[in-house]
Simulated scan of single mutants.
Amino acid sequence: MTIQLGANQYGKAETRLVHVTRGAEAHEIVDLNVSTALSGDLADTHLTGDNAKVLPTDTQKNTVFAFAKEHGVGEIEDFGLKLARHFVGTQEPIHRARVTIEQYGWERIDVDSSPAPHSFQRTGRETRTAMVTVDNSATTDGERAWVVSGLKDLVVLNTTDSEFWGYPKDRYTTLPETHDRVLATAVNAQWRHVDADSDWGKSYDAVRKHLTEAFATTYSLSLQQTLYAMGERVLQHCPEIAEVRLSLPNKHHFVVDMEPFGLRNDNEVFFAADRPYGLIEGTVVQDTAPEPGLAW
């Protein structure tokens, strides 16, 4: 039997970065959670404990902070590309760097109907995400970069135009068929860009718009059908996107039985259950889209 080291990586997880741009008239704030992961010629540290090729994870954390100061943040995809290219460009043993970023939203507090210049409150919107990978290993033809943008916990709900029926039934099935139900989910989406050069902010706004519009306008016979419609609409309207991955937890809303109270519930009062929940996941991809060459 032969035992050998398999795929491996290491890095600094969840570096919390808040960057304030102090303009003369008003301040701007960016709130990020940044994780880095490096891989390459790192067998020695695993097999012998030799750390000569291991850039400390603390150094990776410090690099995140220093780059925010020296370069600013801007769009999170650009910030991730700068970091990833720095790690593979300055550390010879490192062949691949992956930077994953979450961005939390803030908005200005209004004072007497005017936005305060330096006071903010966290928004209730979704979390914006980005995952950037830069690879310059010997197996690639120069540098290759993949950018995956995304969002998490975008909560949406339709009060009607959703059905669920026609499914298999066995001795354990108790769920009644329905031809009019509440459909709700917290959208978790990632989308891979065709290349690593895009107007990231404009693209994000467009993808978000098409995801929510598809959810709102699809008469749904299943959450799977809605998932496909959402991904399909993004690819139809955003040629810069090669692939969309969606994870949609079904946030169940059950009609409350009000007959014991002598009342009729005409789909007006629901119990919102948080668990257990159905989890619907899928990928929608352009048939002509270039392959990433590397797992997301």
Results as ranks from 00 to 15, higher is better:
Tyr10Glu: 12
Glu25Asn: 13
Gly40Glu: 12
Gly49Asn: 04
Ala66Cys: 10
Leu47Trp: 07
Lys53Thr: 08
Leu38His: 06
Gly6Arg: 02
His27Arg: 02
Glu75Tyr: 06
Leu17His: 04
Asp78Trp: 03
Trp106Phe: 14
Ala37Asp: 09
Ala43Tyr: 04
Gly11Leu: 00
Ile94Met: 09
Ala7Glu: 15
Glu107Trp: 00
Val88His: 01
Lys12Met: 04
Ala13Trp: 01
Ala37Ser: 14
Lys82Phe: 07
Asn51Cys: 00
Gly49Val: 05
His19Gly: 12
Thr15Trp: 00
Ala66Leu: 05
Ser39Thr: 12
Gly6Tyr: 06
Val20Cys: 08
Leu38Asn: 00
Ala24Pro: 11
Leu83Gly: 11
Val99Leu: 03
Tyr10Pro: 13
Leu17Thr: 08
Leu38Lys: 09
Ile109Tyr: 04
Glu75Gly: 06
Thr15Lys: 04
Gly74Val: 02
Gly105Glu: 03
Asn33Ser: 14
His71Asp: 15
Val64Asp: 06
Ala43Gln: 08
Lys12Pro: 03
Val54Pro: 09
Ala84Met: 01
Leu81Asp: 14
Gln9His: 13
Gln91Glu: 15
Thr59Met: 02
Ile109Gly: 03
Leu47Gln: 14
Val54Gly: 09
Arg85Met: 05
Asp31Asn: 13
Tyr10Val: 08
Phe67His: 12
Asn8Gln: 15
Asp50Asn: 15
Val54Ile: 11
Ile29Val: 15
Thr63Trp: 01
Asp41Gly: 11
Gln9Gly: 15
Arg98Met: 14
Glu14Lys: 14
Ala7Phe: 13
His71Glu: 15
Arg85Trp: 01
Lys53Trp: 03
Leu81Met: 13
Thr59Ala: 12
His27Asp: 15
Arg16Thr: 13
Ile109His: 02
Asn33Trp: 05
Ala52Asn: 11
Val99His: 05
Pro56Ala: 11
Ile94Gln: 10
Glu70Ser: 15
Leu81Ile: 13
Arg96Phe: 11
Asp50Tyr: 01
Asp78Tyr: 03
Ala68His: 03
Glu107Cys: 05
Asn8Cys: 09
Thr21Cys: 09
Tyr10Phe: 13
Ala13Gly: 09
Trp106Val: 13
Lys12Trp: 03
Thr59Tyr: 02
His46Arg: 04
Asn51Val: 00
Asp78Met: 02
Pro93Asn: 13
Arg16His: 14
Ile29Asn: 06
Leu38Ala: 10
Ala43Arg: 09
Leu42Thr: 02
Asp78Asn: 11
Ala84Arg: 00
Leu55Gly: 07
Gly74Met: 01
Asp58Leu: 02
Glu70Pro: 05
Thr21Asn: 12
Leu55Ala: 14
Arg98Leu: 12
Val73Leu: 04
Glu75Phe: 07
Gly80Met: 00
Gly74Tyr: 04
Asn33Tyr: 08
Glu77Gln: 14
Val54Thr: 12
His46Thr: 10
